[in-house]
Structure formats: structure tokens, C-alpha cells
Design a protein around this nucleic acid. Structure first.
Lengths: 370, 370
DNA sequence: CTGAAAGCGCTTACAG
DNA sequence: CTGAAAGCGCTTACAG
């Protein structure tokens, strides 16, 4: 039995209810002028009485671009991405947009499928933390149809799209320099996902800091995070073990901390560690983690802001603002690097122990939707 | 300038391209039989050539129930809900459903708005972690239109809906009994959100355990989580401070741990703590946290399974399976309760230190979608 | 096996 | 200010 029982009320039902034309109802619903106050009131009443709600599908079919944006992230269970997604939804909602949020699971095929879903829903624009370069072809297709696209966190080349990223190279460089200032000469760079430019930039920042100090870069870069812990352990148990570790993202950091804890290795005495990407529980860890904080929420907000402005400026409108934003990182000094409350070293303008939250939610001038 | 530049190809474009009727294309797209193999091949080719993708809006408008389910959670930044949401999306995707995921921000008005959005999109069914009893009226409205509804984690009465929850009372009771077994006589129950039946059940489990032991229940239940930390601190500094704390959810746990760390209070010696809800970093904390683990992912999976079965069985089909599922919790013993690797107490069948992951992803027999 | 016709609920011109 | 007509892209009967 098909679903069609009571049936949602339609614009025709409302029109009949209060004896006006369908057009008049449509005008009232959409807040158009040119309707007499008396009718507006009658229509409003009928709408309330019937519980009428415009059918989104019909609107889209008529060529309205729906107030929906798409967001694709690799993984919702990762706090970095969920924080980011949360910020996107919040800001989008503030401007009257719904966010269609999908997780690609770091899987090329799923990402492709999700882009098809987004396309078939005529979304107004898309925000994506891309997982595989193969997505570029589909995104180009959307761009060809004038759908705005903004990549965040990491990017792939070959696309006329917006980009919101963070200072991966400088952030990492400062962190590694900090380890050097603590006297470390043998610092191992640990991570995976080197195919992303974000990670590549961090690696490059690490290299520069090591070169600046006249030290030899050492890497433990694997294909994916499985087995990362045991690989690190083997290095630590080798003849010439590193005295400090730099973890390229929060998953790598967690993997490492698990091994260190299990093997009862003392941080920072036996081995120091700094991770890229801070997280809420970092100060409560056995050894409070020193980390390069990325503004996850601000990343989401900036990208959303850029996308919405682009959408509003119209497909062919001149783009008023730049489509490139690079957000600063902040070094959060705790204990795992070797600093103590009594003795913090190498602090300068770029590095801070403050945990001041990011600034106001929406600092730009941008007409709000009530 | 409206968007209509190259324009997505339509079914008519495909039909023209290969010289057949629109119906034939539709049949091919939908995998209906009754089309000659030769035409199927030609149509497929034309679809690929044009990059045709069926317009979802048009399908919905024709009365097709879209393969989309709605999911409303209070907060995506909370790892419990993001894990749950992640599991829902995964399982839904496996069966060919897209998940429209929205966060209510624990706000009645937003929740109401999001339900309207879901309704206007004709979703096939809805999964909700309700935030305010006011949502029941809207959900009833959906039920009246035969849209399946499943509440998870907590429920409100007055609705013909599915319910997937966890053993809040028993889980809490076991945890508090464990604290009693450690010799604690003064155990403070800390939390907020008492309006939810999940929290009320935990409170009730706490009371029962205290009564069983002949102890007097003591509460610190506040309106919302702000200021919870300082309130706890004041209690700990009072004339007769509690020697143990039971935190009613993970946010309460975190707030408490922050204060304890700041004030340098030793756990478990000065005060022991057990929290309801486990999380990934719990074993890496300064004092590894003993917690009542909720199967967050399984919660999402069970609810999704229930919803999809309901959707497939048809609006009026007899419901083959129960619409009530209560998932067991598991006590994860670490250090914050007072146990040590050398001395664990009171372990029995219900309580375990195992951290075995939940079972297979989809144990039920349920036709898959390739 | 195949296609022309009608209509889902809305909005965009077009005439009053 | 207002409404009847046409059509967005699809699918459901209905006739071949």
C-alpha cells in the first residue's frame, strides 16, 4: 500500500480553505509584497490551521536552488571533523541553510557516491574535506554548472574552488623548533596520509626546522594508521632511539600515547612528544599534551562563510572576497614537550600557553536571516 | 541570473539521444524488467555519455518515498552522539539510504525547525535523540502520516514509536555498588539534564544501590553543565566531603576531572570517581577512568535496523519485530574507582575489564543492497 | 516489450 | 493586487 493516507496539505488545499488563488498563497509563503493585508491574514490563518508546509521537492523541481549546502568529511567519529562539521551546521543554519552532511569514510568510492547524491539533490553549494584526488573530476562537473565549491583542511589541485586551510608548515616548524630548544637532537616525525597536502606541508615544516638546527630528519611515515603504534615502539627500542616524537595528526598522537602508556615509557623524560592537532581531553592526559592547535571550528565557519557569500553573490557575480584563506595555528604548551609550570622555554609571540577560545562566532558583516 | 546554464541532462535528453521513449529510460534506470536487452544497452550508453543522474526532486514529487532517513542528535561535537551518528550513517548507507543528519543543539526551537525540514523533505523515516518533550506533537503528526519514528538514547512518552535505549538503571547500580565495595560510604551523584528519562533511570539506579547498602543518597544535580565543576569543588571542600563521585554522563565526568586536576586532588585516594559513558581517551587520562560503557555505535545500529525494517515492512504492514530494544552496558574497570592492576575487587559476570568491541556490524538477517 | 498522456506541488511569467 | 495557464522531471497507469 503506497503512502498517501491523510497526505500533507498542499498549496491548493490552503487556497481552497480561504477562497483565494494558489498564487496568493505562494506569495504569502514567500513573503512577496503585492498582497492585500486582509488576504495575508486569511492565508496565514489557513496555513496554520492546515499545518501547511511547502513541499521542498516541488520547489526544487521548479528550478529553485534549495537552501541546502552539502558537506563531506572523512569521518564523523574524529573529533576534529565533528567539531568542524558542527560549526558548519551552526553557521549555515544561522543563515537559513540546511547542511546535508555525509562521511566519506576515507573511501574513494563512497566519496564519489556521495557527490552523486549531492548533485542529484541540486544543492546550492558544496563544502568538502576531500579524501581522494578522484573527486576533482566530479567537482569540476559541479563547477561547470556554476555550483560553488570550497575545499577545507586539505586541497587537491586542478579546480576552480575556494580553499580554507591552516598554517601547517609554520605550525609544525614552530613545534619542532620547540623540541630542539629543549635540547633534542633526534626527533622522529610520525604519521601517515602523506598524500594529502596538509600532511605534506607539516612534513615540510618539520624538515625545515630540522635543517635550521642542522639536524637530520627521521621519518616513520606509514600507509595507514594500523600498526603505527608497534612501529613506533620498535623505533624506540632500537639501538639509537629518538628522544622526541612529532605526531602529524591526532590519530597518530593517540596511537603513540597508547603504546607509551602500555610500555610504561615516561613522557617527557624517556621520550618527549608534541602532536599536531589539539583536543579537549589533552590537558587531562597522564602527561598533558603539548600540541599545535588547529582552529577546527573556525575552519568550518570560514569555509561556510566563503561558500554562502559565493552562493549569494550569484553564479556569475564578481567574487568580492578572496577564495583562499589560511588560518593560523597556535602552539599549546603543556607538559609532554618537557616544559613544566615552573620552567617553560622558548615562548615568543607565536607560541602561547593561553587557551583563549577563538573570537566571535561571526565577525564579518553578512546580512543575517532572522 | 538564474542558474540554468548547461543544465543537468534529463530523462528526455537521454531518450532523444538513443531514440527511445522516456518510459524506457525510466525503466532501465529503475532496473525494471520488460525492456529488450538491446535497448537496455543503448540506454545505458546514452546515460553514461550524458552523465545523466535522475533528479531526486522530481521523483519525490511523484510520490516516491526518497531513500533518505532523518537523524536528529543534540550535539555533533559530543563523541557519544557523533559515534552514534556515524554508525547510523554507515548502516543506512549499506542499505542504500542517505541520512539527513541535523543537530538540535539541545534547543527546543531548533529541534522543532529541524523536524519541519525533515517533514518538508518527505523522508522515509526518522531517528531522533529527543531534546524537548515538545517534539512529541510533531512526531505524532509524522506518525499520523505513517512515517516510522524511532527514538534513541532517551524517550518521551505519548508516541507510537520505536525505542532503543540502554540499561541505565542496572548499569549505574552496578557501578555504585562497586564504589560501595571499595568501602565508600559517602558517594555523591553528580549531573544535570534530569528531565531525560535516561538520566532519571541512572539516578534511580544510584538510589537503589545506595539503599541496598543502607547508605544515604546525596545529589548534586544542576540545571545545565555550566558551573558544575565549581559546585563539585565546593562540596569536596565542605565539612563532610564525599569520598567518591558518580558522574551521570561524560560531560559531567569531564567537568569534574578538570576541577580535580586543577585543584591537584588525588584520584582515587582523595576522591574516587566512576562515570557513566566511556570514551576513547579514558585509558590515557592521568588516572585511567573507570566507566560504565554504553554501546554508542550499537545504539545507532540497532535503531537504524529497526527503522529500516519498519520502513520496508510498509506503513501498515504487521511489525514483525518488537519496537523496544534495551542494550546492555558494560563496566570498564580502570583506576579511578580505586582498583589497581594488582587488586581488582568485586568483579562478577556483569562487570568486566575486557574492552572487547561490540559484535559484528550487522548480525541480523536483512537483505543487503549491493 | 514500448510509448503518449496525465499529474505530483510548486513558481514564473502573463494577463487582468 | 490577483489568478489561470504552463511546465519543472519524473513515474504511474493505460493503451498499444
Amino acid at each position: 500500500m503506497p503512502r498517501k493516507l491523510p497526505g500533507n496539505p498542499t498549496i491548493a488545499d490552503v487556497a481552497r480553505e480561504c477562497g483565494v488563488g494558489a498564487m496568493t498563497v505562494s506569495r504569502v509563503v514567500n513573503g512577496r509584497k503585492l498582497v492585500s493585508a486582509a488576504k495575508v491574514a486569511r492565508v496565514r490563518e489557513a496555513i496554520a490551521k492546515l499545518g501547511y508546509e511547502p513541499n521542498e521537492a516541488a520547489r526544487i523541481l521548479k528550478g529553485q536552488v534549495p537552501r541546502t549546502i552539502g558537506l563531506i568529511v572523512p569521518d564523523l567519529a574524529d573529533p576534529f571533523f565533528s567539531t568542524c562539521a558542527h560549526a558548519v551546521q551552526r553557521m549555515a543554519a544561522k543563515y537559513g541553510y540546511t547542511t546535508l552532511l555525509l562521511a566519506s569514510e576515507r573511501n574513494r568510492a563512497r566519496e564519489a557516491k556521495e557527490l552523486v547524491i549531492m548533485k542529484s539533490r541540486n544543492i546550492a553549494g558544496i563544502l568538502i574535506v576531500p579524501t581522494d584526488a578522484a573527486c576533482i573530476a566530479q567537482l569540476q562537473d559541479m563547477r561547470a554548472r556554476d555550483v560553488p565549491v570550497v575545499m577545507l583542511d586539505r586541497t587537491f589541485p586542478g579546480l576552480d574552488a575556494g580553499e580554507v586551510t591552516v598554517e601547517n608548515e609554520e605550525g609544525t616548524r614552530g613545534a619542532v623548533r620547540h623540541l630542539v630548544e629543549h635540547g633534542h637532537r633526534s626527533i622522529l616525525c610520525v604519521g601517515y596520509d602523506r598524500q594529502f597536502n596538509s600532511i605534506a606541508q607539516r612534513i615540510s615544516g618539520y624538515k625545515r626546522a630540522m635543517n635550521d638546527a642542522g639536524l637530520k630528519p627521521q621519518f616513520l611515515i606509514v600507509e595507514d594508521d594500523s600498526g603505527l603504534g608497534s612501529r613506533v615502539l620498535r623505533r624506540l627500542q632500537s639501538a639509537k632511539p629518538p628522544t622526541a616524537l612529532f605526531a602529524l595528526n591526532n590519530v597518530a598522537t593517540t596511537r603513540i600515547l597508547h603504546v607509551l602508556q602500555r610500555e610504561n615509557l615516561q613522557v617527557p623524560d624517556e621520550v618527549a612528544i608534541i602532536g599536531f592537532d589539539d583536543f579537549e581531553l589533552a590537558p587531562l592526559l597522564a602527561v598533558p599534551l603539548t600540541a599545535v592547535r588547529q582552529p577546527a571550528a573556525e575552519l568550518g565557519r570560514s569555509a561556510t562563510r566563503m561558500l554562502l557569500q559565493w552562493i549569494r553573490s550569484g553564479a556569475s557575480g564578481t567574487r568580492s572576497s578572496s577564495l583562499q584563506v589560511v588560518l593560523p595555528t597556535e602552539m599549546i604548551i603543556r607538559r609532554s614537550c618537557g616544559c613544566t609550570p615552573e620552567r617553560k622555554i622558548g615562548l615568543d609571540g607565536r607560541q602561547s600557553i593561553s587557551s583563549a577560545p577563538a573570537s566571535a562566532e561571526d565577525p564579518i558583516a553578512f546580512p543575517n536571516v532572522s
